[in-house]
Simulated scan of single mutants.
Amino acid sequence: METFQVVILALIQGLTEFLPISSSAHLILPAQLLGWPDQGLSFDVAVNTGSLLAVVIYFRRELWTMAGAWSVSIVKRESSAESKLAWWIILATIPAVICGFAFKDFISTNLRSSAVIATTTIVFGLLLWWADYAGKRQLSEYQAGWKKALFIGVAQALALIPGTSRSGATMTAGLMLGLTREAAARFSFLMSVPVSLGAAILVTKDLLENPAAIDTHALILGTVLSFVSAYACIHYFLKIISKMGMLPFVIYRLALGLFLVGFLLFV
């Protein structure tokens, strides 16, 4: 890839990974609409690692506290709000892990198309609008409970379909279940840690099994830019989401979906 393409794709990954607009769709579309070369597995690992580092560093205190409380809950069987949240995050990860292993090849072979992305972008955009409009928005992430966490985990599994958006699906589910916008976003971001780590490990395994030429400059640049843009995205999104709501992202999703429909029909 040219440096310009590396910069654009890395910024797209960092910004869209945590916004409810689907990072996978935005990484697939440049190749399909602009004829750019496929970025390859090594670049996917790099930019996903950058996004993962961003969320881990941003939530380092919460993650450290949750890890300690989770360990205490196992060793001493003492429960706390932080240990419960840690267990709920683990539980919410299971559906995506199962579906990822079961349908990974089918999804990569049959669902990475502009038509699928157009459909999921519109449908799940409307669901996000409805959840934000109708949700009670009263609960914090510490009040979710295991049933709500599992439901959000199922929504996360649906986001394996390109265009759905992992953060969009999980925030939609959280809002449906009565979480505040900030709580739904934080729960979604914390959920991204085990899923992103697992995805990076799987993609790295595929890369090692199918070695290819590696552009070190592109990987380093992609990782750094993805980290910076993802960190900024998390920070500012959490600051403005309570006032802004989800409507701007819904409008963007609908506009993107309709543009793709028009592109498929007339180009």
Rank of each mutant, 00 (worst) to 15 (best):
Q5F: 14
Q5S: 11
V6D: 07
L11R: 04
G14A: 02
E17S: 07
E17K: 06
P20I: 14
I21K: 07
A25E: 00
A25T: 05
I28G: 04
L34T: 01
D38T: 07
Q39T: 06
S42K: 10
S42L: 12
D44S: 11
D44E: 12
A46I: 07
N48S: 10
L52K: 12
L52W: 15
A54G: 03
V56R: 09
V56T: 11
I57V: 14
Y58R: 05
M66A: 09
M66S: 08
A67R: 12
G68M: 12
W70R: 15
W70L: 15
V72E: 15
V72N: 15
V75L: 15
S79T: 15
S79F: 00
S80L: 11
A81S: 14
A86I: 10
W88K: 04
T93S: 10
P95R: 14
C99N: 00
F101E: 06
K104S: 15
S108V: 13
L111I: 02
R112Q: 12
T119I: 02
T121A: 03
I122K: 01
V123K: 05
V123E: 06
V123T: 08
L126S: 06
A131G: 00
A131K: 02
D132G: 03
D132K: 02
Y133K: 14
A134P: 00
R137G: 01
Y142C: 05
A144V: 11
K148C: 08
A149W: 06
G153S: 07
G153M: 08
P162A: 05
S167Q: 13
S167F: 15
A169T: 09
M171E: 13
G178H: 02
A183N: 03
A184Q: 02
A185D: 08
R186W: 04
V195K: 05
L197C: 08
I201W: 15
L202C: 09
L202Q: 14
V203C: 07
V203D: 09
V203N: 11
T204E: 11
K205E: 11
K205W: 11
L208E: 10
P211R: 11
A212Q: 13
I214F: 07
D215E: 10
L221Y: 10
T223R: 04
I234L: 09
H235R: 12
I241F: 13
S242G: 09
L247A: 07
P248Y: 11
Y252H: 02
L254Y: 11
L256N: 02
L258H: 09
V261Q: 01
F263D: 04
L264S: 01
L264M: 05
L264V: 03
